[in-house]
Amino acid sequence: MTICFQSPIKPITIPQLTALSNPKLRFRCNLSLPSRYPLTSTEPEPVYASVKAFAPATIANLGPGFDFLGCAVDGLGDFVSLSLDPHVHPGEISISEISGDNANKLSKNPLWNCAGIAAIEVMKMLGIRSVGLSLSLEKGLPLGSGLGSSAASAAAAAVAVNEIFGGKLGVEELVMAGLKSEEKVSGYHADNVAPSIMGGFVLIRNYEPLEMIRLSFPEEKELFFVLVSPEFEAPTKKMRAALPTEIGMPHHVWNSSQAGALVAGVLQGDLMGLGKALSSDKIVEPTRAPLIPGMEGVKKAAIEAGAFGCTISGAGPTAVAVIDDEERGVEIGEQMVKAFLKEGNLKAVANVRRLDRAGARLVGSISR
Rank of each mutant, 00 (worst) to 15 (best):
S96W: 00
P250D: 13
F68Q: 04
G273K: 11
A350C: 09
L203E: 15
L141G: 02
G70H: 06
V73N: 02
G77N: 06
A264D: 12
G306L: 04
E233F: 09
L141I: 06
L133T: 10
E211D: 11
P244A: 03
N109K: 11
V171S: 14
E296L: 12
I164R: 00
M123R: 02
P290L: 00
G91M: 07
T318Q: 05
Y207P: 02
E327T: 13
K299C: 08
A358V: 06
E343Q: 15
P64M: 08
G364N: 13
I95Y: 01
E233P: 02
G273Y: 06
T40P: 01
K184G: 04
V159L: 15
E326F: 13
I93K: 05
T318Y: 03
P286Y: 07
A242D: 00
I93D: 07
E43R: 11
L169V: 09
G314M: 11
G306W: 05
P46N: 10
A358F: 02
S257R: 13
S216C: 13
L69I: 09
I128A: 00
L84D: 05
G273T: 10
A118G: 12
V193N: 05
A72I: 11
M239Q: 12
A307Y: 01
N30T: 14
L243K: 05
A339C: 01
K338W: 01
A152D: 07
V337F: 02
K299G: 03
A60M: 03
N104C: 07
A103K: 14
Y188S: 10
V298F: 01
P23S: 03
F5E: 15
P44Y: 08
I9A: 08
S153Q: 11
R328W: 04
K139Q: 04
A242H: 04
G275R: 00
E343N: 15
N192C: 05
E343K: 15
L215A: 10
G148M: 01
A152H: 03
A49D: 12
M272F: 05
L203D: 10
M249H: 11
S130I: 08
Y37P: 04
V159D: 08
A301K: 09
L31Q: 14
P244T: 05
A307Q: 01
R354H: 09
G309W: 12
S181R: 11
S153D: 13
I213D: 13
G333N: 08
L20I: 10
L133I: 11
L84T: 06
K180A: 12
V284H: 07
A152N: 04
E334P: 00
A154Y: 01
L137I: 15
H251I: 05
G273Q: 12
R357G: 00
E246M: 11
L76Q: 07
T287D: 06
P46Y: 06
M176R: 12
T311F: 12
N102D: 15
E219I: 13
K276A: 14
K139R: 12
A160I: 06
G63D: 07
G65P: 02
G127P: 06
L111K: 12
G127I: 01
A53E: 03
N206M: 09
G359H: 06
E222F: 00
A241M: 08
P86C: 09
E138A: 12
V193M: 07
